[in-house]
Design a protein around this nucleic acid. Structure first.
Lengths: 211, 211
DNA sequence: ATCAAAATCATACAAATGCGGTATTGATGC
DNA sequence: GCATCAATACCGCATTTGTATGATTTTGAT
């Protein structure tokens, strides 16, 4: 028999943790090496006992699962991380991917799917729940209805937004463009209205495109 | 019996086109409505006869499959597009996603997987060959190996900086982290000192690696 | 020539922010 | 034990920023 895929589980809720461990350990070709109730516990043990795959809950007490992955990814470069959670909010999904996760399953997935996914992840895939996969694919679409949100801005407004993106204050922008600070503020206010934001950081994020 | 999933196929190579059509039409719950040898032919017919799913080859004579999707996506908003090709080069994959494809299968996939994928796509998923999925997931990973200025920040400071990067105000960060606004301000002040910046936008730029 | 949009500037107010200092607690390291 | 640092918290001040209202001038298109 070939070597089993080694797995660790980070999940604070006792019953879920137990049933995951039993599921994994009971299946042929899988071996549950460790379980943790908290991100901190995982961070303490795993770096010196790296496993193939970590099933990571996101909503943990103390440090959350995403930050935990961010750290572990550096300490266990060969380990694959599967987020395993209830939530499928956009920000959470993308933050998890940025942190280094290669898989994202919703907890409603049936047990046999989970084992399949672990294998796929181990073999170089990136198994995702279907709604998650769709979110990710959609995030690439160059939107048809709002091709460039920035198109609604006038050239002058773009010019000002560009300065803001470099961290300039109202006054600095005004000096550079040889207009009064109040003019700059008026422009910025108009920019905010058009982009539907309420602060510099939000506007700059839209300007430079997120992700 | 419920309505079959309607499918169209765009593929220039005769034998492949034929076997795909037979596979789809022969399976229960699927109906192959049309096949095309070229992107141009598909663009002429499909807008007035939209189908549920289009299997699209990329390497076509004349217009390629990606540009074809780009056009069709606007004319048939409800149609799902599955790229079905030999290539798995990065640029091709991402261009296809940007054009509006929600699925990307390599031609080496076995027939039953193809039918499964069509169903998954129709039901709101985004089925990908595993190597493709991994490429996509990896494209999100943030460059953590580079010598990072952010290493000088404490975990708490990074946590706060992350919220700032999303456009949160001091108060919003405080509420989310359950600490007082003055504490947040102190953290932010420390962050500015360490990163040698003097405003949110500058700090966020460093955090997100924007030069 | 006329009209609409864009760019300019002013004034005003409330809230948010940047900067400085101080202090307590708990954890870590020497 | 002692020093250091992270995290927490408060006070206060000057400035910046977000929002609102209003007005004038330039410019481009019809």
């Amino acid at each position: 028999m070939k070597t089993a895929i080694t797995v660790a589980i980070v999940e604070d809720k006792e019953p879920i943790r137990q049933s995951l461990a039993i599921l994994v350990d009971g299946a042929d070709g899988f071996s549950c090496q460790a379980t943790f109730e908290t991100a901190e516990a995982a961070l303490e043990y795993l770096p010196s006992h790296c496993v193939d795959v970590v099933l990571m809950d996101i909503d943990l007490p103390g440090m959350n699962g995403i930050d935990c992955v961010r750290h572990l990814k550096l300490l266990c470069p060969g380990t694959q991380f599967m987020m395993c959670t209830m939530y499928d909010e956009d920000e959470t999904v993308f933050d998890a991917l940025k942190a280094g996760a290669n898989s994202y399953l919703l907890k409603r997935s049936p047990p046999h799917k989970l084992l399949e996914a672990i294998t796929e992840l181990y073999e170089g895939g990136a198994p995702m729940s279907s709604t998650i996969a769709r979110k990710i694919a959609s995030s690439f679409h160059i939107n048809t209805s709002a091709p460039n949100e920035l198109d609604v801005l006038t050239p002058r407004e773009r010019e000002i937004l560009d300065r803001l993106s470099k961290g300039y204050s109202h006054k600095e922008v005004a000096n550079e463009l040889f207009v009064s600070p109040t003019t700059v503020r008026k422009h910025i206010f108009n920019i905010y209205e058009k982009l539907q934001v309420h602060s510099k950081v939000e506007a700059v994020n839209k300007y430079l495109g997120r992700r």
